[in-house]
Design a protein around this nucleic acid. Structure first.
Lengths: 233, 233
DNA sequence: ACAAAAACATAACAAAAGTCATTTTAACAT
DNA sequence: ATGTTAAAATGACTTTTGTTATGTTTTTGT
């Protein structure tokens, strides 16, 4: 077997697969591919840190990252998990603010960085693209508002169920309905916004009630419908 | 005295005062003023309702409105209060989604509606304006993320203190540091995301501790610094 | 494969917040 | 100005969630 199968040259990534770029012309995609810098990030590495100045945004080509803010006394609040096909860091970049979140790799990843001037050039010269960007931002803003209502009105139990559904809908499961993404209880807690022990207790309850099965860090869905009912989504 | 002092013709409003429009040319401001429809809204009236299709966005020229989502079993979650100089409804408009919030007047208001085609025309023809729009959206997205961290990690007591500070910083107070905006305890609770009784109890505590004074619906700041300390902002 | 470290699980308890019932007060329309 | 209605206040009680402590299991790195 050739070494490249194990160490794929990250430069080979083609950005035209990203929905984000669907309104760009071939020439513009070309520029993008020319200007990009791709890199492999090992699990645990930090792509950018809260408070840092960004020089570009990133396209996730492979792997999983968590995006989080550091709250009171250092407690992480996970804003979202991102995977292949997602774009990160463009908000802080476009508002010309320092990064307000940290991006940490939780599953070996390949990211392509696009420099800020390239983004600005594309936005300025392609109305379809900037209109699309505006639409994406507006949609994310709605999602954030939805999330605020959720987190403010739902119990921890409901929010945990909701996070499980979110993971189920956005990440891979195997043939037994086992989530392939591996998160610690603490990370789940930081997503839900609660104490680690509460997550442990509630997951145990869900298991006792026959809704899920737990094998170490692996979570298997047994009665997804009931979890959806608890989550109220 | 002339009647117009009591019933100002809302058409007289000039939109060039809005920071939102700061990158428009005089001709564009002219178009805006030409296309706008201004209207007086009495306290209690609804400007648009969650789920409705919007035909334009609104500039708030006078008065106060609350923007809220309806959560589980009809409970309101107030997303924000808006006042003179604020713009509402442009997110749902630009993403071409149905309104995801309701806008209700809590202090007699004057709003100018700008039709969607006008907004689109300005965005498409003035790069400075659409860039400014992108920056505003990105900034609001950061604020939403900050708020999520807050609401997920802080106690009800801390969040109530934070809401008081937010009101203090964004709305008028008289010479005694009394908030001029008049909200019910229920509205405060819907902002904080808690039960009305909890707000009442905590406000009483704040009063007992000499941080605020309460006279009916009027809230007076006595020890603002301590409230900020509780809020952690 | 194995030891060390980290994560997980559980229980007992404390604190925070929600709910319900009742009385008091303030806001609003006439 | 005044009665009516809605909102606010208060207390007793329940439920939820957080905290601390301790033992067990799983990961992880070598």
């Amino acid at each position: 077997m050739r070494a490249s199968l194990y160490n794929p040259r990250p430069e080979e990534t083609n950005l035209s697969d990203f929905k984000f770029f669907k309104h760009l012309t071939d020439a513009e995609i070309g520029k993008l591919n020319y200007d990009k810098t791709c890199q492999i990030y090992k699990k645990g590495s930090i792509v950018y840190r809260e408070g840092s100045r960004l020089t570009g945004f990133y396209c996730v080509t492979r792997g999983i990252l968590k995006i989080y803010k550091t709250g009171i006394d250092g407690k992480e609040q996970i804003i979202r998990f991102v995977k292949k096909g997602d774009i990160i860091a463009f908000r802080s970049l476009l508002s010309q603010e320092l990064a307000c979140t940290t991006a940490k790799v939780i599953d070996d990843a390949v990211l392509c960085q696009i420099p800020y001037p390239t983004l600005l050039f594309l936005l300025q010269n392609n109305w379809k693209f900037s209109h699309w960007m505006i639409q994406i931002l507006c949609r994310e803003l709605r999602e954030a508002n939805d999330y605020i209502t959720d987190i403010a009105q739902k119990s921890v139990r409901e929010r945990l169920a909701e996070v499980l559904i979110l993971l189920r809908d956005n990440f891979d499961v195997d043939e037994n309905d086992t989530l392939q993404i591996s998160l610690t209880r603490e990370e789940l807690a930081n997503m839900v916004g609660t104490a680690t022990e509460s997550v442990i207790r509630l997951l145990s309850e869900f298991k006792q009630d026959g809704l899920i099965d737990l094998k170490g860090r692996r979570i298997t869905f047994i009665d997804e419908a009931s979890i959806r009912k608890i989550a109220n989504v």
